[in-house]
Write a protein that binds this DNA or RNA. Structure first.
Lengths: 221, 221
DNA sequence: AAATAAATTTAGACAAATCTAAAAATAATT
DNA sequence: AATTATTTTTAGATTTGTCTAAATTTATTT
């Protein structure tokens, strides 16, 4: 058996290895992600290594083993399906569901996840536009570009976001941006890379480059 | 904060005090219910007493304090709402949902429970016919009688069951009995108190007295 | 290459929840 | 009322996940 805490570490390792460039993940990186100390991480790495969930060499770093990766995909699947349920069926906003899904993803029952998947109509993406792994861990890849790389006059539909924290999502809500929103790029200011754009052919908005780097779109013009 | 394990103990104390006759619950009773030892129970009782969830006198027994009772009702509400969701929305059978709901009831979020309640249409009873407490802990009492006390020729609708274990519920499935099933009592044999009855005006069935003591009905004739 | 800085691991300790075995208190029986 | 029997509690040990402080290894800088 694997404990809830061990699952959290596996998720952290997966997330870091996805976002970072290096193949191996460091102890301090995990410690920061988990809001704990490097010493605690080392203890846990030894345990996960004994259970063959990770490949671990002292002082060098870790990466997920095949079974660790499978576990991470299973957690991702559960997390994203529950987020979809909370938004689609219970009417939560996309910036309110992360903490609840964080708890729900630890519920043990394959039957439950598969039935939830069916009930939701086998969605391919969650409320933040992240792909939902199927029962075999396969993910649908989408053709998307980052808002900050688009050119003047081009038009796109928002399909996802890179950051998931409440503050960022709440800011997007305030300027009227959500999944499915149409965006027309009016002008990118070369001075600071900030972007003026038209939201849903109605409202104008100005986004800093920092924000634009975290928004994914499907280009339609 | 209260841990998941502490919540399990509170539920156990509540369940025992409901089913039994005495006001105070004994250490051994709790140990049996939780599948643990009396020593472990004593340790936990001291903790729950410090948190003022229970009223505890050494060697005498325990009962829930007002805040302990409120916590028990909250857990009961969550458990029964999740069971309703699993059966009504995800299509599970009533004998498959207990273990999953046992995990789901520990999810922390008042907002989630209240939204789930609304999504289900504010049900008053769960798939086993047990009453679902409202947000204030209030329960709807139903006018029900036990099958073993009914007389020949009388007719009723099954509204609940006293036992919830898989084996018992599965046996009821096999003879075609569920919540809402109409039952006509053909004859009660005085020899062993077993009962012959007509299920949904179609099938005949013979139930032992042990089984009949655990089925609740609303009398309609 | 030696010295300093940074990252990582070990050592030892702590709180939560559990256990076994032994002691103490209460209940039942003669 | 004295003696068993039962129930409950204490004492001491174990496991999991965590911590601080110290030691060790790797990386960087002079």
């Amino acid at each position: 058996m694997i404990t809830s805490t061990e699952e959290d570490y596996i998720k952290a390792i997966f997330n870091i290895s996805q976002s970072g460039k290096r193949e191996l993940v460091g102890t301090n990186q995990i410690a920061e992600q988990m809001s704990t100390t490097a010493a605690s991480v080392t203890d846990m790495l030894r345990k996960l290594s004994n259970k063959e969930m990770i490949l671990y060499e002292k002082y060098k770093g870790v990466k997920l083993s095949p079974s660790g990766t499978a576990k991470a995909m299973s957690l991702l699947r559960k997390h994203r399906l529950w987020e979809s349920f909370l938004v689609e069926k219970l009417g939560f906003a996309w910036d309110e569901v992360h903490d609840i899904a964080e708890q729900l993803e630890h519920i043990q029952s394959l039957e439950l996840v598969d039935r939830l998947d069916k009930y939701l109509g086998y969605p391919k993406f969650d409320p933040h536009g992240d792909p939902i792994p199927d029962p075999h861990g396969t993910i649908t890849i989408r053709n998307q570009i980052v808002l900050s790389t688009m050119e003047d006059e081009s038009v796109g539909i928002v399909v996802g976001v890179k950051k998931h924290d409440k503050d960022f999502l709440h800011h997007l809500n305030q300027v009227g941006i959500n999944i499915g929103t149409e965006i027309k790029l009016i002008h990118k200011y070369s001075y600071d890379q900030s972007i003026k754009l038209l939201v849903n052919n109605k409202e104008e908005a100005l986004l800093t480059s920092k924000v634009c780097e975290n928004i994914f779109l499907k280009k339609i013009k």
